[in-house]
Amino acid sequence: MSKHLKIALVDDDIPNTEILRDFLIRNGYSHVDKYHDGETFLDSLDRFDERAVVLDFDLSGGGEINGLEVLEALKERSPQTHVIFFSGQDSLEVAVESLKNGADDYIVKSNAAFALVKTSLDKVYDLQVLRSNEKRNQRISWSLALGWLVTLVGVAIFVAN
């Protein structure tokens, strides 16, 4: 089943990013962009960016800024964006800092990491589906309420006449 969640992978590790992208596509995520430095990724952002972001901490192989700086700039421009930190740094300090700055999850790169990233993205996807259902239900409720109102006004006019 294709999952309608757009994803951006930001990591200077080219082979692992390519493999993770293929892995996610095989698991139903059809729209996966990749960036090898933070600057190019931030340039690609727009105000209503709906992508979930999988972000590495050490981006020194690609650009000048690290993952925490990307996270900070991203949250300023697009606070609703979900961010999963995906890092080779098993540092508590970086993990705490990323979560304090709005990351939804922190995953240390390991053999099981691709599956963990997918699980974390599945949660973001489920949340997105839930929100979209809530909005749809809200629209239906408003339509029903409006329908009742119109009917009541019609009945009131009929009775008055």
Binding site: D12, P15, N16, G61, K109
Partner: peptide, 15 residues
């Protein structure tokens, strides 16, 4: 250090 950091994820991926 920087090179080792970059390489360690890759060698891990290939087991």
């Amino acid at each position: 250090r920087s090179i080792l950091h970059k390489l360690k994820s890759q060698v891990q991926t290939i087991g």
